[in-house]
Nucleic acid binder design. Structure first.
Lengths: 214, 214
DNA sequence: TTCCAACTACCGGCTTCCGGGTAAGCGAAG
DNA sequence: CTTCGCTTACCCGGAAGCCGGTAGTTGGAA
């Protein structure tokens, strides 16, 4: 019996996934929670075999939650589940230790396969994501394998969030008690790191990662 | 036996909802499709009692799909299902004839209640949405009940989409073979209609309505 | 200790955004 | 036929975005 914890901020989706997974009698959903904090709190006592983690979570994102969860419970397998297909996000989830990544556009059977695979100690990417990662490898090879300094600093993440909420640089400067020019520097740096070229792209990135809600 | 058609662009969610709803033996999911065109095509032959429609659909949004569906099949009840809580969007769905609106953050039981209610000819809003609409009424009363000319024209929708894709006004002008100043006029008009004040807010609105993907 | 990444701050310059106005052509609805 | 909404197009001006550069401080890692 595989013990599963579901983490997804939409109650409806959580209940529905639970209902779908429990059709399979070898699976048992021991917990279904809506945010990262609760997941971390309950993981110790419920000892799930697999955590199915939505990437876009309010507050701490699924990425940060996964990092913290695996730091405390390295024996738990994390299977990422996401609405969005973005190579950077897949990369980050795998970097923090997720064993697999399933798109919500994939069929339900891919989720069950993913669970079986990660429990068996293997990695699993749904087909669409696998294609995406393959493209990424090809691009990386073409670019001569130069280092992607992807991870944003704390300040950059904060600035990205506020910009994606629709605030202007001067507004943010006032809110954080720093100079507008400094906000500008952070914006430029984070946009260069992520290869974004205007606030609209930044906004969409922030939404995909769950940094802000649409 | 209530015949249900599910419309949601995420296969995983579609299958999961199907699984959840069919726990109830009085419900029968006769079709589960991923886009508006298919829904319109299959509605005639399958004759569902209720269509559970995700608002954010690729291509034609759930709003447009609902309008066209009810124009051809006024006897079908449409129950909107959405990730987002936005008064303007709720308003638009109800304007085009939806009988109810359920947030994905609501519990599964609200969806089942919604289905039962709309089949019985009543309207149904999940509690969060009901609160939202009540707030809207209060604001409307405070504003003296002035007319909200909310609906966007075809051109405005097009401009909104392109802006939310990260294109600049000059880019869009070139793409559509019109003057940049004209793009600007459409931008200003649509932003005034929707009470948005910068492209970031516009982007998030476009994402909420499914005009663009994040 | 040395080094590097992060945070802070400023300069300049060009482009774009955003809000305000005006106005003409055109097709549908009244 | 008149009116109304949509689309087209232009004017202006202040604010902000976007990109390039330089540079001081600080705190932690090698």
């Amino acid at each position: 019996m595989i013990r599963i914890m579901l983490v997804d901020d939409h109650t409806m989706v959580r209940e529905a996934l639970c209902s779908m997974l429990e059709q399979d009698k070898t699976l048992k959903v021991v917990s279904a929670v809506g945010d990262g904090e609760t997941a971390l709190r309950l993981a110790a006592e419920l000892a799930p075999t697999v955590v199915v983690m939505d990437v876009a979570l309010p507050g701490a994102s699924g990425i940060e939650t996964t990092r913290r969860l695996l730091a405390r419970h390295p024996e738990i397998k994390v299977l990422a589940l996401s609405t969005y297909l973005d190579r950077r996000i897949v990369q980050q989830m795998l970097d923090v230790g997720a064993s697999g990544y399933i798109a919500k556009s994939a069929a339900g059977v891919e989720l069950r396969q993913g669970i079986q695979n990660v429990v068996a100690g293997r990695s699993y990417l749904c087909s669409e994501v696998a294609a995406l990662v393959a493209d990424g490898l090809r691009e990386l090879a073409a670019a001569g394998g130069k280092h992607d300094t992807n991870a944003l600093s704390r300040r950059e993440t904060q600035i990205a969030t506020l910009l994606a909420e629709g605030k202007s640089a001067p507004d943010i400067a006032a809110e954080l008690h720093i100079a507008p020019s400094t906000v500008d520097v952070h914006r430029r740096n984070l946009m260069r790191k992520l290869d974004l070229h205007n606030v609209v792209e930044l906004t969409r990135y922030a939404i995909r990662t769950g940094l802000v809600l649409p």
